[in-house]
């Protein structure tokens, strides 16, 4: 059996309890896509930051919220945060490689269909978007955002293996994250006269092939990087729990 298959089989033990969560995610899909579809027209006329923020939230964090609480990344002791099931698997003779892959499979089973659905709904119900982006260019646009979902989202499975987190460290990460998002949200309109989403629309329609290629490569590289990081990290981290 190859490693991805073994990893998938392992993922099933968590996914069997995730049906409800995935259903809940579909339920969340309605208001998200409603907002993103209804306001795309006015956004295309004049960009506004709330739309960009919402887009980032949808492709960045929305998918993780739906997980059952037993399988969430959580505080295990004073300064240890981890996903408990991953910690448990670490005690068994399952190669790390396979544990790591299963974490990524689980996350992408949550996030990818959700992201894809948002994009498809937007394109089906917003004529303004169809006018701006013909199908091929829309595919490039989708790839850019799916890739963003993968690049940014890889942090979640990678962190399942656990971190020694102090409050100071946690606060530091929060500041860095919020800071960099704000920077992008402000810098893009300042430098280009587009909003963030608007800029990706421009990229997709001007250079559909190049932007698609870069997106796919970036996604692959990011997954590869975080999987390696996670394996190394598990080799170093102390599991007292």
């Amino acid at each position: 059996m190859n490693r991805w298959q073994q990893a998938f089989r392992l993922s099933k033990f968590e996914l069997i309890h995730s049906k409800k969560s995935i259903l809940f995610l579909l339920f969340l899909l309605a208001p998200y896509s409603f907002f993103l579809t209804m306001s795309i027209g006015s956004y295309l006329e004049e960009h506004f930051m709330l739309y960009d923020i919402f887009f980032l939230l949808t492709f960045g964090v929305a998918a993780i919220w739906a997980k059952p609480k037993e399988y969430q990344y959580q505080k295990l002791s004073d300064n240890m945060w981890a996903q408990p099931f991953t910690v448990f698997l670490n005690q068994l003779p399952i190669p790390r490689e396979i544990v790591v892959r299963s974490r990524f499979i689980i996350y992408f089973i949550y996030s990818l269909p959700f992201h894809l659905a948002v994009l498809v709904i937007m394109y089906s119900f917003a004529p303004e978007l169809r006018q701006t982006l013909p199908p091929l260019e829309f595919i490039a646009f989708s790839l850019i955002w799916l890739s963003f979902g993968i690049c940014y989202g890889s942090v979640y499975p990678a962190s399942d293996s656990g971190d020694k987190v102090t409050n100071v460290k946690m606060a530091f990460y929060a500041v860095v994250l919020l800071g960099s998002f704000s920077l992008i949200l402000f810098a893009v309109p300042y430098l280009s006269s587009y909003g963030l989403v608007g800029l990706t629309i421009v990229l997709a329609s001007k250079w559909p092939i190049v932007s698609s290629l870069i997106s796919v490569i970036a996604a692959g590289a990011s997954v590869e990087f975080w999987m390696r990081y996670m394996k190394k990290h598990m080799n170093k981290l102390d599991y007292f729990q």
């Binding site: 059952p68 099931f85 991953t86 448990f88």
Partner: peptide, 8 residues
């Protein structure tokens, strides 16, 4: 104590 298996 065993972690993470409550649903299994």
């Amino acid at each position: 104590s065993v972690l993470g298996c409550d649903l299994l």
